[in-house]
C-alpha cells in the first residue's frame, strides 16, 4: 500500500518543531508500524536526509520504550503498543499523522523521542518495598490470597510507556501512580510503607507537572496493558486514608 505520513520533526529540545510530509510506497500489511518507519528511514538515508528519531527496544510489547501518537491516539487505533501495531490496521492511500507523546512532563528531545524520566522519579519516591538483599524471610512464610495476588499482578503489568499521560487531556499520570499503589498495596509485604508511599508519590506527581485526574478515562482506554481505571480510585482511597492517619 501507499501512504502519506505527516511526521513531527524537531532538531532538539531547544528547537521549534514542525510537521513534515513524507510519501512511502510498497508498505506490506505484515509490517509492524515501526518496521514501516524503518523502511522510511532507509529511504531517507539513501536520499541523504537524516532519518527520523523514534524510540523502541524490545519490539514485543513489554519494555515500554516505544510510543507514538498515531492519528491523535496514543499507540494508534488498536489496544496495544506501537511496536505491536501492524500495517494491516491501515489501508492504501491513508494519511497518517505521527507525533511524539504530548505532555508537559515529557519534553521532546528530538523528533519523536521524549524524556520520561519523570516516571522514574515518581518510583524513586516510594514505588518500592524496602527490603535489603538477604534480609527476606522464607517465601512461604507469608501466604497471599490468590485474588490479591491476581489484582497485584494486573496492576504490576504496567510497562511505564506513558500512553496514559499522552492520552489524558490533563496530562495526568494518575493511572501510572495508581497502578503502583495498587500493585504494592494489595500485598502484605507492601503494608508497612503504604501511607507514606502514596503521599510521596502523589507529591512527586504534582511536582513533575502532571495534571490532575478528572475521570475522563482516556488513560485506561489507551493503556496497552489494559490497566483498569479502578487503580485511580484505589489511589484516592489510599491517599485519604494516609491523610487521615496524619501524614
Amino acid at each position: 500500500m501507499k501512504l502519506t505520513l505527516e511526521i513531527w520533526r524537531q532538531e532538539d529540545a531547544a528547537s521549534k518543531g514542525a510537521m513534515q510530509t513524507y510519501e512511502i510506497d510498497e508498505v506490506s500489511e505484515d509490517m509492524s508500524f515501526l518496521e514501516m518507519l524503518d523502511v522510511l528511514n532507509e529511504q531517507l538515508n539513501s536520499q541523504g536526509d537524516e532519518p527520523i528519531a523514534f524510540d523502541s527496544d524490545c519490539r514485543e510489547g513489554i519494555c515500554g520504550m516505544c510510543g507514538l501518537m498515531i492519528n491523535g491516539e496514543a499507540h494508534g487505533p488498536e489496544v496495544t503498543t506501537t511496536c505491536q501495531l501492524h500495517m494491516r490496521s491501515f489501508k492504501d492511500g491513508d494519511t497518517i499523522t505521527i507525533e511524539p507523546w504530548r505532555a508537559s512532563a515529557f519534553p521532546v528531545m528530538k523528533d519523536l523521542c521524549v524524556d520520561r524520566g519523570s516516571l522514574d522519579r515518581m518510583i524513586q519516591q516510594g514505588g518500592y518495598i524496602s527490603v535489603n538483599t538477604g534480609s527476606a524471610p522464607e517465601a512461604h512464610s507469608v501466604p497471599v490470597p490468590r485474588d490479591h495476588a491476581v489484582r497485584a499482578f494486573t496492576a504490576a503489568a504496567c510497562i511505564s510507556c506513558g500512553a496514559c499521560v499522552a492520552a489524558c487531556p490533563n496530562g495526568s499520570a494518575q493511572l501510572f501512580v495508581g497502578a503502583k499503589i495498587t500493585h504494592l498495596g494489595e500485598l502484605p509485604q507492601g503494608q508497612p510503607e503504604r501511607d507514606q508511599r502514596v503521599v510521596d508519590m502523589v507529591a512527586q506527581h504534582d511536582h513533575e507537572g502532571f495534571g490532575g485526574c478528572t475521570n475522563i478515562g482516556q488513560c485506561t482506554a489507551a493503556c496497552p496493558k489494559e490497566i483498569p481505571l479502578d487503580v485511580i480510585s484505589q489511589l484516592n482511597k489510599d491517599l485519604r486514608t494516609a491523610l487521615r492517619h496524619g501524614l
Binding site: 518500592y128 518495598i129 527490603v131 538483599t133 538477604g134 534480609s135 527476606a136 524471610p137 522464607e138 517465601a139 512461604h140 507469608v142 501466604p143 497471599v144 490470597p145 490468590r146 495476588a149 497485584a152 499482578f153 504490576a156 500493585h183 504494592l184 500485598l187 509485604q189 507492601g190
Partner: peptide, 20 residues
C-alpha cells in the same frame, strides 16, 4: 534465596488458592 528476596519485594508470582 532469590525467590525469598523477590517475594519480599512484592513480585506477584502466581499463587495457589491457599495463598502459597
Amino acid at each position: 534465596s532469590i525467590i525469598d528476596q523477590c517475594v519480599a519485594q512484592g513480585v506477584p508470582f502466581a499463587r495457589e488458592y491457599g495463598g502459597l
